[in-house]
Computed example of a mutant assay.
Amino acid sequence: MTPPETDLSGDTAAGDQSPAVSLRPKPSVLRKRRDFTRAARGKRVAMPGFIVQMVVRPEGEATGIRVGFTCSKKVGNAVARNRAKRRLREIARLTLPRQGKPGNDYVLIGRRNTTATLPFDQLKSDFARALDILHGVVK
């Protein structure tokens, strides 16, 4: 099976749908505690369904977008935490390649009773709005 035809700008013939194969680099995932603690000292924005932390990496470190996800036990049992993190991973996958800035680290923190239950479209729009706030974009 071959992917649908697309030009190099990422636009498809169908309009605003994303292509089957992404042309943007995929963000790498934060795994080390020091990266999470560094992000905790940076800027943060609280939204109804999650909290976003952002820090600009120092000069000399690798470029590109990095993202981390966390949910404490306050979010619920393992099933609830995993569901919340899956939703956070998906909104990051859809939004960061377009709105994230290379050289930044982002950490998404799940919230009790809301990350797993809010409508997905609301989570996605809240994340886009949080990124605008963190980057200083005024709309």
Rank of each mutant, 00 (worst) to 15 (best):
F120R: 03
R33E: 08
G100L: 02
P3G: 12
A78F: 09
E90R: 08
D126I: 00
R44D: 03
G100D: 03
K26I: 09
G68Q: 04
G42D: 02
T114R: 05
T37P: 04
N104D: 06
K32D: 11
K43E: 11
F36H: 06
F120Y: 15
A13T: 15
K85R: 15
R129V: 05
L131T: 00
R44M: 13
R112W: 05
K101Y: 05
R41S: 12
L96W: 02
S22N: 09
N113G: 07
R98P: 04
G110W: 00
V56W: 04
A80M: 13
E90T: 15
A62S: 15
F69D: 00
G64W: 02
E59I: 02
V137I: 11
V75I: 14
V138Q: 13
P102V: 06
K32N: 09
G68K: 02
K74E: 09
P4T: 10
G10W: 04
K26P: 04
R83N: 05
H135K: 11
S72P: 08
L131F: 00
V55W: 00
R83P: 00
Q53D: 04
K32A: 12
P4L: 13
K26W: 10
L23S: 09
R57Q: 03
K85Q: 15
G64L: 07
A40D: 11
V138M: 10
G15C: 08
V21C: 08
I51L: 08
M1I: 09
T114M: 03
K73T: 15
V29A: 14
Y106Q: 05
P97T: 10
K73V: 15
A46F: 05
R89T: 11
G49M: 00
R38V: 02
I91A: 00
V75S: 01
V79S: 07
D16M: 12
L30K: 02
F127E: 01
T115R: 02
S125H: 07
G60R: 02
G136V: 07
Q122Y: 06
S22T: 12
S125R: 09
R66C: 03
L123A: 00
A130G: 06
L30P: 01
R38Q: 12
R38P: 01
K74Q: 13
T115K: 01
N77W: 07
A78K: 07
A92H: 03
Q53W: 00
A46Y: 04
K32I: 06
R57N: 03
M54N: 02
R24W: 11
V21F: 06
L118D: 04
A20N: 06
A84T: 00
F50Y: 05
R93H: 13
N82A: 13
R81M: 02
N104H: 14
L94Q: 15
I133T: 12
A80T: 15
I133K: 14
G15M: 11
K74T: 12
T117Y: 10
L8V: 13
S22G: 11
V138R: 14
G49H: 00
R112Y: 07
L96I: 08
D121I: 12
G103L: 03
